[in-house]
Design a protein around this nucleic acid. Structure first.
Lengths: 193, 193
DNA sequence: ACCTGAACACCGTTCAAGT
DNA sequence: ACCTGAACACCGTTCAAGT
């Protein structure tokens, strides 16, 4: 192998797998941020040559996409039976908590164009909450791409939202921007203090 | 020089300057997105060797920071005498319009840690509007760094905000997160439709 | 099938040299 | 002072070769 006695290798030999690759990449990101995720660095973390990763992950972009999804899977869903308003509050708070633990995940979520299912799930909620702030995505394009990769019977509500609104010809998010803006401004003006 | 007859050079010879470098970088970004901004590519845009840029810009990071600021300078301020609520609305809309024209600028604004004065100015407003959505910055640290580089008599309101709130020991943005969240949820619940 | 070494075309940045 | 060529230490990725 590498000439070192087996006892000095960092881990006992274990076959590589997509899962081990993604876990290693996550560790690298937790230590050094998103920019530290590098084919060569992740390979080193696994005591393996850089090229070996390509047998389990098509390229770097896919590796980074694969790393974001488990983070969002870690966000617990609110208990059943909660009233809608309270459920939203619980969800928003636990999302905030998980993102605070993996600070690098938020910026990734914003920039990725091929998010996994868990990312999509939470992204849909966050998208609604944040709409007033960042309505700048090229919605038609992004939405179309997402729909293409969405398995037929997954996330029916997200699918409905995309098909019935975002993909309608002439759909323009300006009106939702104005709606959200007025919502916040009105609420601020009417606040008790 | 490069052996080509002068007539074939793309532009008549002109001395390099920080300004020309930043303008060239902006053009590169408008064409190919943030990731296209590269020391070597910007140099090529200017018909110059990569190393020449280092005489006008300390490094790539500073170059990217320098590129964001002019974009925000392009956001017009609302006319004087507007009522506060209407002024905020106008400002939010024109911010949205300029960012839509330079799509790459928003992601840069989020990730930069050494923004220029114009970026700061608008960032402060956007920060307030978006607080419910992205309260995850390490506020003490970012705020401290910003203050250090802020000239003494610039942006007094931003300074006041930072000193009186963000830098207070034990300051925790959780409470503002909850405040913003409730504001939106209450408003949604009370909406006419 | 899975892992690898060498190679290719790119990066940012330093340094010594040119004018 | 400003521009440059060569070099260094890094990238992602391909390809042919090993097992």
């Amino acid at each position: 192998m590498n000439g070192l006695p087996t006892a000095l290798r960092r881990e006992p030999y274990k076959r590589l797998s997509r899962d081990r690759v993604l876990r290693a990449a996550t560790q690298v990101a937790d230590r050094g941020g998103v920019k530290a995720i590098t084919i060569r660095r992740v390979a080193q973390e696994l005591d393996v040559e850089a090229m070996s990763l390509y047998h389990h992950v098509p390229n770097k972009e896919a590796m980074v996409d694969g790393v974001v999804d488990p983070v969002f899977t870690a966000i617990p869903l609110p208990a059943d039976g909660l009233e809608c308003r309270e459920a939203t509050r619980v969800r928003a708070r636990s999302t905030r908590a998980v993102l605070a633990k993996h600070r690098w995940a938020l910026e990734l979520m914003d920039s990725r164009r091929s998010p996994g299912p868990a990312t999509l799930h939470h992204d849909a909620l966050l998208g609604v909450l944040r709409k007033a702030g960042s309505p700048l995505d090229d919605l038609q394009e992004v939405a179309g791409g997402i729909l293409e990769h969405l398995p037929a019977h997954e996330l029916p509500h997200l699918r409905e939202l995309v098909v019935d609104h975002a993909l309608q010809p002439g759909y323009d998010c300006s009106s939702e921007f104005d709606y959200g803006l007025d919502l916040v401004l009105d609420a601020l003006e009417a606040r008790p203090t």
